[in-house]
Design a protein around this nucleic acid. Structure first.
Length: 140
DNA sequence: TGTGAGCGC
């Protein structure tokens, strides 16, 4: 089934106004470090972007709860200003609920804005208390 | 104009 709307990352090139070609070596080096163009593998965690600044965590959970059991939802906001950054995360209880959530909410309107829902990228923990707050450095 | 394409403390 083809998606009815483009993925957020695909929109970036539409905003590009560059009229010259980048150096091939630099482009190849950047491609080696950049994220692959494939979508993230299915996960119960969803990354939701395109949110209105007025959309709150409760509204996010409310909207996504129609398609499955939401165990956690969060709109990311600036810690000091308190304003929404325009994206958030929704975690479903099961993979199939997450899939239904994407199918049901991706490209739909929430608070007047078209939102994008996709699988969130896996994120390693910043530090482990077992290592005295320091990340593992390969030392045994 | 927290009018943006952004992965969380």
């Amino acid at each position: 089934m083809p998606p009815s709307v483009a993925a957020p990352r695909s929109l970036r090139r539409l905003f590009s106004t560059s009229s010259f070609f980048p150096p091939p070596a630099a482009a190849a080096a950047a491609a080696a470090v950049a994220q692959p163009r494939v979508e993230p593998e299915p996960n119960t965690n969803l990354f939701v972007s395109g949110l209105s600044k007025r959309t709150t965590t409760e509204k996010l959970r409310e909207a996504f709860s129609q398609f499955g059991e939401v165990v956690h939802a969060r709109v990311v906001s600036d810690r000091i200003s308190g304003y929404s950054k325009g994206f958030g995360f929704v975690r479903y209880a099961t993979l199939e609920d997450a899939a239904k959530g994407i199918e049901g909410m991706n490209g739909k309107y929430l608070d007047g804005w078209v939102i994008f829902a996709e699988y969130a990228r896996p994120r390693p923990p910043p530090a482990s208390p077992l290592n005295n707050g320091f990340p593992s450095y390969g030392h045994q």
